[in-house]
Design a protein around this nucleic acid. Structure first.
Length: 717
DNA sequence: CGATCGTCCTTTTTT
DNA sequence: AGGACGATCG
């Protein structure tokens, strides 16, 4: 009998998806049902049937997922297939067609930090009080608008302070970004969509080039990504999307589960395949995950089952303290390792990054090798961002945010006054800061120290402009040599010096490797890559197997034998900021569903009796989600059940806090009448910002103060 | 102008 | 507890 590498080990449903011919295809794939396998095999099948590899485009959301898929596609012989994240694919396409959109080819990509920096400048220009509205808040709000394709002119602000500021700043921000030749992450998608819509000949070229498009984690596409797919596949309709509505966990950045519902409407004749057999986990794990997710109301019907052998119960652990929790996890992991598990088969998840700390310490104490995935990545470090900013300004001299970053780093006598003068000169000449510095007339306006600084910067950039063509590493070397940056950053005294110097070396190595591997791409290509790669895994993994520590978000798409989730506490998981609406709460539940279903063999969920939140200690209640686990598959440790019972009353009690809405009138026992501006937090930590009669705004902890809710009145003040 | 000190505020999740 | 930013002083 003949062996078929592509089809033999697939079940009938998987096979149907792989063999599906032309036309739209949607695969509803439960956790662990072989989703990635279906996509990669489908690609292999297409290639085997004569589809040219360059006409296939496979899209994912995270770099990690893209790397993984690329690896698996390559194993099946598809080395030249384009596998990319949405953002990196768009960036690459835009690089080709930037001019059509009036962007320079060397446009800069701003990460969140740069974006906020840019917003800070704009906000300052418009006299906003940055104490009250932080750039990051503006940035998030604007990003949310971009996710739903609301342009500045279309924005209808609500009554909040934030909206007012956004309406003031959004347009100018866009203008400034354009002037600087910069795009934020959202712009990458938006601008490419604009390109497709406004330039039919360009759209046609992409449609004809990529005749087969496949999308992983489709439940996380936002509106823009969805429209982009529709444009791209408008002619041929050869779009295969794979997703699981129960694993949609990016609502906060605009993901629309609705896309899965509307797909069949927008793509008539869609073939639908359901994958409901879980090949990954024990029945206990599958049952627990299903029981949790069953509490969500907004769901597509889907049932997951497994024929795997039974294993251990789900462990729920209560620890007296965060340190004890971490120690218990470390001890448990140690035991797994002694039983023969590889560290690479074990993972610890948490809802928020800061919870990694305690676990890290415990692991160090136990001598367990670990790696923190995500967090502050290599390319977000101060010294790395500084050096890259030098290069970015060289590739894109319009990029004021980057240039201003390095203008006085290391110090060159550019203080507040000199910077103001430089800005003014640039404004007058309608040019960028770097262009201004290059102008001898402008330099003549500066005082002694700053002038000398400007002279040296100007001459550095004259050289850099020619060096740019020679690649990333030599440009970087030039910057280091001419600025004395290394001495500046690694010179004086603190223990971080060595690490910073090592980081700089690592960047040099990284750049050298890139130049060697991507000869034609040059510095622009390099900068694009480092802007979109969050990865610390970028520099290979020569370090041997390690236990992975990561957020649940980062864990999506991965699987491990043994999974530990720490911080299973109210206000933490579900997160307090997500307690506002049912939609948010359901997303938190999906997050737990994702966490549990990562595990092949065992799951432990733990919580501590208190948590240190911001210097102060907070009593911590077990996550309400823990009560949703079916008793028959759970083993509780550390008197967890007892605590849950005894704390129920307390929990229920805090629910009695009256539901306050923004705009409600209230009476405060001390301050008298006021209007609620904002409600945040949850449970005993629900806070309301209230403006009182005397004009002052105060934040009130609802659990502490009995507010009397007054009947609404016509006028607000 | 820049370094040091003090204060404030933070901690959601990702490209 | 720790980092970022602002104010103050040299």
């Amino acid at each position: 009998m003949r062996v078929d590498r592509i089809l033999d080990d697939l079940n009938p449903d998987q096979r149907r998806a792989v063999l599906h011919g032309e036309g739209p295809l949607m695969v509803l794939a439960g956790a662990g049902s072989g989703k990635t396998r279906v996509i990669t095999r489908r690609i292999a099948r297409l290639l085997r049937d004569g589809v040219p590899p360059w006409s296939v485009l496979a899209l994912t959301f995270t770099n990690k997922a893209a790397d993984e898929m690329r690896r698996r596609v390559q194993d099946l012989g598809g080395d030249t297939v384009a596998v990319a994240t949405f953002h990196s694919a768009c960036a690459r396409f835009l690089r080709q067609d930037a001019e059509r959109l009036d962007y320079p080819r060397g446009f800069t990509i701003y990460d969140t930090y740069d974006r906020d920096q840019c917003l800070r400048m704009v906000a300052e220009e418009h006299g906003l009080d940055l104490q009250r509205v932080r750039p990051a808040d503006l940035g998030r709000a604007i990003s949310r608008l971009k996710n739903v394709r609301v342009r500045p002119a279309e924005f209808r602000p609500g009554h909040g302070e934030l909206d007012r500021c956004v309406s003031l700043v959004y347009g100018p921000y866009e203008a400034r970004m354009r002037r600087q030749g910069a795009m934020d992450f959202d712009d990458l998608l938006l601008n490419f969509l604009d390109l497709l819509e406004q330039h039919p000949e360009a759209a046609q070229a992409y449609q004809q080039r990529f005749r087969w498009v496949l999308v992983d984690e489709f439940q996380d596409t936002n509106l823009v990504q969805y429209q982009l797919l529709r444009q791209l596949c408008r002619e041929h309709q050869n779009l295969c999307v794979v997703g699981d509505p129960d694993q949609s966990i990016y609502r906060f950045r605009g993901a629309e589960v609705r896309n899965m519902l509307e797909f069949q409407r927008d793509f008539p004749g869609t073939a639908v395949v359901r994958l409901e057999t879980n090949y990954r986990s024990t029945p206990q794990i599958v049952h627990a995950a299903e029981a949790v997710i069953a509490n969500n109301h907004m769901r597509l019907e889907k049932a997951l089952h497994t024929e795997n052998e039974p294993g251990e119960p789900i462990a729920v652990l209560r620890a007296p303290s965060p340190d004890a929790e971490a120690a218990a996890v470390a001890a448990g992991v140690r035991e797994r390792l002694q039983d023969g598990a590889s560290p690479a088969d074990v993972a610890v998840f948490y809802r928020t990054h800061f919870l990694s700390r305690a676990v890290e310490e415990a692991f160090r104490g136990e001598g367990i090798p670990y790696v923190v995935v995500g967090g502050v990545s290599f390319f977000e470090r101060r010294e790395i961002k500084d050096l890259l900013a030098y290069l970015r300004a060289a590739v894109n001299p319009l990029d004021d945010v980057s240039f201003e970053r390095i203008l006085n780093v290391p110090a060159r006598g550019f203080g507040k006054a000199a910077l103001a003068r430089l800005r003014e000169a640039a404004n007058q000449r309608a040019c960028s800061l770097l262009e201004a510095v290059r102008d001898p007339e402008v330099r003549a306006l500066l005082a002694g120290k700053a002038r000398r600084g400007a002279e040296s910067l100007a001459s550095l950039y004259e050289e850099l402009f020619t060096e740019v063509a020679h690649g990333a590493a030599t440009s970087l070397g030039l910057v280091l040599e001419r600025t004395g940056y290394r001495e500046y950053a690694c010179g004086l005294g603190d223990p971080e010096d060595v690490a910073r110097s090592e980081n700089i070396d690592e960047l040099l190595t990284h750049a050298t490797n890139y130049d060697a591997e991507h000869a034609g791409e040059g510095l622009p290509g390099y900068l694009q890559r480092v802007s979109l790669v969050t990865a610390e895994e970028e520099q290979g993994e020569p370090k041997g197997p390690r236990v992975s520590l990561m957020t649940v978000h980062a864990a999506k798409g991965l699987e491990f034998d043994h999974v530990y989730v720490v911080g299973m506490e109210e206000d933490l998981f579900p997160h307090s900021r997500a307690a506002g609406s049912d939609e948010d709460l359901e997303e938190e539940r999906r997050l737990l569903y994702v966490a549990i279903t990562r595990a092949r063999r065992s799951v432990q969920l733990s919580h501590a009796a208190y948590r240190t939140v911001g210097g102060s200690i907070r009593h911590a209640l077990p996550s309400p989600f823990l009560k949703e686990l079916p008793a028959e598959v759970v083993a509780r440790h550390g008197a967890a059940d007892l605590r849950i019972e005894s704390q129920d009353a307390e929990w229920e009690g805090s629910q009695e806090t009256p539901d306050l809405e923004c705009g409600a009138r209230v009476r405060h026992p001390v301050y008298g009448e006021g209007v609620v501006l904002d409600v945040s937090g949850a449970g005993i930590r629900t806070r309301a910002r209230i403006r009182f009669r005397d004009g002052a705004e105060r934040t009130v902890l609802l659990d502490y103060v009995r507010l009397q809710i007054l009947p609404p009145r016509g006028a607000t003040w």
